[in-house]
């Protein structure tokens, strides 16, 4: 029978004692040396394992590490943060951006309406969004997903995400772009363990990219597949960087954080339309303030037969679909 390692290792040559011997009160020099050698070998093995970390250079500065949550930053601290980000972007891309912290406007609640009769599935909105919002080109991150749906069903499992015909639209199909629905009851906000994502007063759910810990719980919670995670460091060609930036909007992200459509806050909070709307060649996209009864979206919601996706999950989207006929 092998001698149990748990027992003392003195008396190597003696028969196994019938009962356990006491552990030595103090270790012998030999066992101390041996124990220390084993420890040292273990530590050395761990240190060797960590070798790839020498290539780790982009985990952010000490200031970024210590930066407080967006809602706790004083105006002074915020301007320090903004100029720090400008400096970081300049170092990385060689151009100095203009980074602002645009707040929600009073008396404004944004709503989007999308005309499924008019959408032709050209995906111009997808690409305009990528360029406007400084999304990573490789790996490609896109906030808008357009589904090619066969007429006669709304079962999204029947939709085609990767359609690539010579020209669109194809007969027998309709096209349904899906992006963040800016829900009034957003499950993503509820599940975030660190309040890194929240709903602003104008109805836009934003993300503090500098606070997100990258647990991806929000991504699991979203019923619309609206969120995108930076699985690696994003790459954007220098000449394609959009330098008109906002903190909660299109400032360049880093690996390990979540992002998603924010209705182009850097544009819409400054009185412009979202990029996806401006580029749409068919006028299928409508955007505006639902609190203004004369706005286009108010009129659409009043007069068209509109619907929302997955109404049964109770998320109360601010993104409506409608048909012209």
């Amino acid at each position: 029978m092998p001698r149990p390692p748990g027992a003392t290792d003195m008396n190597e040559n003696l028969p196994v004692p019938p009962s356990p011997a006491p552990e030595p009160a103090s270790m012998s020099r030999r066992s101390f040396l041996r124990g220390s050698t084993v420890m040292a070998a273990g530590v050395a093995a761990m240190a060797a394992g960590l070798a790839p970390l020498r290539k780790l250079g982009d985990f952010g500065s000490v200031d970024e590490f210590l930066q407080a949550h967006y809602n706790e930053l004083s105006p002074d601290q915020m301007s320090t943060v903004l100029s720090r980000i400008e400096g970081e972007v300049q170092r990385q891309y060689g151009v100095r951006p203009h980074v602002r912290d645009l707040k929600a406007m009073n008396g404004v609640e944004f709503v989007y309406a999308l005309n499924l009769t008019r959408c032709t599935g050209c995906r111009k909105c997808v690409h305009a969004c990528v360029e406007e919002n400084n999304q990573s080109r490789d790996p490609a991150i896109e906030y808008i997903r357009v589904l090619k749906m066969p007429n006669g069903t709304f079962d999204m499992e029947k939709g085609d995400h990767n359609y690539a015909p010579e020209s669109v639209p194809e007969p027998g199909f309709f096209y349904m772009p899906v992006q963040c629905h800016q829900c009034k009851n957003p499950p993503c906000v509820k599940v975030c363990p660190v309040k890194a994502t929240w709903q602003d007063p104008d109805g836009i759910t934003v993300i503090d990219y500098n606070w997100c810990i990258g647990c991806r719980y929000c991504e699991a919670a979203c019923p619309y597949f609206a969120r995108r995670f930076n699985f690696s460091e994003p790459t954007i060609p220098k000449e394609q960087l959009n330098t008109n930036m906002s903190y909660l909007g299109n400032q360049p992200r880093h690996k390990g954080v979540m992002e998603k459509c924010h209705f182009c806050v850097q544009r819409t909070r400054a009185g412009l339309y979202p990029a996806c709307l401006e580029v749409c060649p068919t006028g299928a996209r409508k955007f505006g303030n639902i609190l203004d009864p004369h706005s286009e979206v108010s009129q659409i919601l009043k007069h068209k037969r509109v619907f929302v996706l997955k109404e049964e999950v109770g998320t109360l989207p601010r993104f409506f679909y409608y048909f012209d006929v």
Partner: peptide, 30 residues
């Protein structure tokens, strides 16, 4: 300990390159 060191080495690669080193995607995010 050797297995731990191998795991630590793999984790170091993940820290450097990001979670792209895993099989996860936006669709299967865990």
């Amino acid at each position: 300990t050797a297995m731990c060191a191998i795991g630590l080495n793999a984790y170091s690669h993940q820290l450097v390159d990001g979670l792209i080193t895993t099989g996860m995607t936006d669709q299967v995010s865990w």
